[in-house]
Design a protein around this nucleic acid. Structure first.
Lengths: 144, 144
DNA sequence: TATTGTTATACTCTATAACTATA
DNA sequence: TATAGTTATAGAGTATAACAATA
């Protein structure tokens, strides 16, 4: 594990942090438009993608189970999500978005795409492809 | 403003969000090692870089002035930072890191560099240069 | 009167642990 | 006894507005 030369990594470290702060600020703005926090918005996305158990949400979000309960209560009170008992194991809960929840989730994705797209507009077509490939490697995802 | 084709931007939108969450989680871990939050750590870095007025901190951090006051109180109580009256305009406060504050800030930078470097290790030397150039463009910074 | 920064208040978020229901 | 999830409690973070001191 020799690794790349230090000054480059140092600059990357600053730039990476700057990008993170930039995107974090934009994401918070976008989600606030629907009155949701970062984690509330993420719960909507994860449930839409098929994560239907609170304990799985806690793993994805890297938070405590109790916090997931709070998040679910708030989203249920907002009419965005329903909690249903699992007929196969009555300790478990199955999560499902309401119609309103699906609509809000869709709007959030669109708004995030617009906000983020404004930053991406600084890059040219070829650079976007490069950036995608680098992000795939960095995040360990084959396809986004 | 035609912009790039949508499916690519959509994948980039997901990958960008994933990277942001990844880096956010790592940054929180790193700063927690010194018992500091994201913003507390950022105040240390900004003050070290010469941002010496609370109002300038509020701009950089995109938070309310009152929150800066709270951050400064906590950092001062931790012995990391001092508030000194500006002799030229006694409404103003000049911020300066203590020795302990400088040491903590240095350790945080090193720890962040290590944590982030582990992710960068997924890229090869040439890719790192590409990634730096793309990040420079995206964050609007000439040099990080 | 405008500016800089702090304090007061209420509200949300987060962490730990105790608790309930089911298996 | 172990597991899934919730509730209780306290603490940290955040937003708004009122405030004090100085210019």
């Amino acid at each position: 594990m020799k690794g790349p030369p230090l000054p480059l990594v140092e600059e990357l470290s600053r730039l990476g942090y700057a990008l993170m702060r930039l995107l974090l600020a934009r994401a918070k703005e976008v989600f606030a438009q629907e009155g949701l926090s970062l984690l509330q918005a993420e719960v909507l996305r994860l449930v839409k993608e098929g994560v239907s158990a609170p304990s799985r949400l806690a793993e994805h979000l890297e938070v405590q189970p109790s916090q997931v309960s709070h998040l679910l209560v708030s989203l249920e009170e907002a009419g965005l999500l329903g909690r249903h008992p699992d007929p196969e194991d009555r300790r478990r809960v199955l999560l499902r978005l309401t119609e309103k929840g699906e609509a809000v989730e869709r709007r959030l994705q669109e708004a995030w795409l617009r906000a983020y797209g404004q930053h991406l507009a600084r890059l040219e077509a070829g650079e976007l492809l490069l950036f995608r490939d680098l992000l795939r490697k960095l995040t360990g995802v084959e396809r986004g």
